[in-house]
Write a protein that binds this DNA or RNA. Structure first.
Lengths: 218, 218
DNA sequence: CCATTAACGCGAACAGGATCGCGTATTCAA
DNA sequence: TTGAATACGCGATCCTGTTCGCGTTAATGG
């Protein structure tokens, strides 16, 4: 009585062994759902992929999906999570911590862009998700974004300590600006108004402007 | 035969006088719908305001709304349009064309913020709308955004000609960055994670960073 | 007058995301 | 063995944005 924290989905009973038969079946179902969802998102796009179709391909009823996910969008951000990890991994391998800060930032953004460019849907839905306050998926995406911002901040913090950047810059705010530049640049792309390369260049230009500044140096 | 351009909504028969009784009734209905929609958005928020409730308050059936608007979101961007006009108006009156560019930009952004701060829903839905490619409302919002970017560009172009800004800055790209800073800063606010003043300051800080640059000047 | 043509309005129906209540399977404790 | 607890699965149902087909109203032209 009186413990209905989350609406449902995602069991969290500490007394249950991870090898519990119920949980194992659950994990398998979850995997099947994700697989089906990814395939259908790829084939038809997010909005055209019906939950009922996903469920059918996963071999279950539509309502069962809600045992494992709280919303359709969560099926996507599961991917987003992995994709970000991958972007960071690619960035870190081959990263030169002594390279110019601007270069390091660009390298990270390129790695991220390369991955996102393969799936404009993901970008779009992630953005859309943040426009639904109260829904859990919004907070999940915002948390992911914060992690990205954190990484950018880390890079710039290092640059500031090496006196590559002005001493008084607020690295957190700077990281946010960089992030917002990327987000903004992706909207026209995800809407089919520009291609991936143009999007990449827009990000590049924006970052260059930020680093160089607009004011005539005096 | 074969002329179904728009799905429907918005008559455009040049042979009809604007004083045509049908059109007049239509305009009245449109106004009633907008009034009801604004009230309900205000009272319950966008997502909680049902089309059926809006229609009821407007004194008609829900489906009739689609004679005048193509989607629920269009009920909002009608406001967005006016709000932007108002922001520009407020900015222009009392604008000093010889003031420092950074100051002028800030003034405009403050004027805009002051209006948007009254209605976080509007901000959120406008953003959400741009994540729905193909739907007309997306293009409408993108067009409005472009107009804002255009105004910012205008301001900065003037600053560049007065040698306040570096000669080689891409003012269009700079304007986009400024715009993206504002958009990004509003997301946490619209999600209830920060208050309006924090949002304003974030925009302020971001713009300052952009103008000043991150690189240690050399 | 009457036929034609639009713009309007409406109730019914559709579609798809999400919820509910109930039944099943698995585990553990007594 | 039995009973409680818990994770799962499912069909029915709800909710709401949107579409459809039909009837109504107002102007136009012969």
């Amino acid at each position: 009585m009186a413990h209905s924290e989350s609406t449902q989905a995602a069991p969290n009973n500490p007394r249950l062994s991870p090898e519990d038969g119920r949980l194992r079946r659950g994990r398998r179902s979850r995997a099947l759902i994700l697989k089906a969802a990814r395939e259908l998102f790829e084939e038809r796009g997010f909005d055209e992929a019906t939950l009922r179709a996903i469920a059918e391909r996963a071999g279950m009823g539509a309502s069962s999906i809600y045992r494992h996910f709280q919303s359709k969008e969560e099926l996507l951000i599961a991917d987003l999570d992995e994709l970000q990890e991958e972007a960071w991994r690619r960035f870190r391998e081959g990263d030169d911590r002594k390279a110019p800060t601007r270069k390091r930032v660009t390298r990270f953004l390129d790695a991220q862009h390369q991955l996102l460019a393969e799936d404009s849907d993901l970008t779009l839905i992630a953005l859309r998700a943040t426009t639904r306050p109260g829904v859990r998926v919004a907070q999940q995406v915002l948390a992911l974004n914060d992690r990205t911002i954190g990484l950018l901040m880390e890079i710039m913090q290092m640059g500031r300590m090496q006196s590559q950047l002005k001493r008084n810059v607020d690295v957190l705010e700077a990281a946010r600006v960089v992030f917002n530049i990327t987000q903004g640049a992706r909207i026209p792309w995800a809407n089919g108004l520009t291609d991936a390369e143009t999007c990449r260049q827009a990000i590049q230009k924006g970052v260059d402007l930020l680093f160089g500044g607009l004011d005539k140096s005096g």
